[in-house]
């Protein structure tokens, strides 16, 4: 297995009194695509969001256990959450471009990091848009509002926006669930290309999607990590009965 990027040890997470994650220990390798699958409410999105501490925003969340990224516990007291989120970028389920122009959407991240040089910004924006496979569609109208783009384009723009801050890890929370099949396949192609440079963790409801693009797959059920292995193994010869039942469509 490749170099370990993310590692969790006995992670428990509670929403007020409800347990959402129960003793998760997992090791996610660098520059691979790791997919989390499982039925709704199984905790996979919650787990994803705890990897860049987005759960901090929700009232009443209590986390026990450890999450190491590059062997540093991100729940340590002296961790700068803002910098952590630069290192661990996130793409959301629903595309959420800002009410700004296409250019400004991508330039926002670099700008808040202190890059104000117009030429430098132009370069970063162009590279990010090329990497997110949307450059050809928007290069002539960078000044237009991002909200005028189609759903699929918006989502790729959001990926470009995430790439523009140059993260090491990209978390994706069902990035294609609200898109039509054509846009979905574009996003999937894009994700596969991105793994050359980034460690990608993707939550998906779509098992075919996980099978198509991921290197490793983790199956979550009722807040527990049931099985984690190479995607091929999970989809052809799972160890656990529950995993098999789920991927063959017997429940979920």
């Amino acid at each position: 297995m490749a170099i370990e990027k993310i590692h969790t040890e006995n992670l428990f997470l509670h929403y007020s009194s409800k347990m959402a994650l129960n003793n998760i220990s997992i090791s996610i390798p660098e520059k691979k695509i790791t997919a989390f699958i499982g039925p709704s409410g199984c905790g996979k999105s919650t787990f994803l969001r705890s990897l860049n501490r987005m759960n901090d925003l929700i009232d009443g969340v209590k986390i026990e256990g450890k999450i190491f990224i590059d062997h540093i516990n991100i729940y340590d007291k002296n961790i700068d959450v803002v910098t952590l989120r630069k290192k661990v970028g996130m793409v959301f389920q629903k595309s959420n471009p800002f009410a700004k122009s296409i250019f400004e959407n991508v330039a926002y991240g670099p700008r808040i990091n202190g890059i104000n040089d117009k030429k430098h910004l132009d370069e970063i924006v162009e590279t990010a848009l090329i990497n997110a496979a949307i450059w050809d569609e928007v290069k002539d109208r960078l000044g237009d509002s991002a909200l005028a783009l189609s759903g699929g384009q918006q989502q790729r723009l959001c990926i470009a926006r995430t790439l523009a801050v140059n993260p090491e890890i990209v978390l994706m929370d069902e990035p294609a669930s609200a898109l039509d099949p054509l846009s979905t396949s574009k996003i999937e192609e894009l994700i596969v290309e991105l793994k050359e440079k980034y460690t990608i963790v993707i939550v998906t409801h779509n098992m075919q999607q996980a099978a198509r693009i991921s290197d490793l797959t983790a199956f979550f059920y009722l807040g527990e990590l049931i099985e984690f292995d190479k995607t091929k193994k999970i989809f052809t010869n799972p160890e656990k009965k529950q995993t098999e039942d789920y991927i063959t469509g017997r429940f979920g």
Binding site: L57, V82, R85, N96, G109
Partner: peptide
């Protein structure tokens, strides 16, 4: 979602409020 997107890009609360929410 604007708020979340901005924070996920490594913006501080302050930056998010002034450069995303306010505009």
């Amino acid at each position: 979602s604007f708020y979340e997107a901005s924070l996920a890009l490594g913006a501080s609360k302050w930056q998010t409020a002034f450069f995303v929410i306010l505009p």
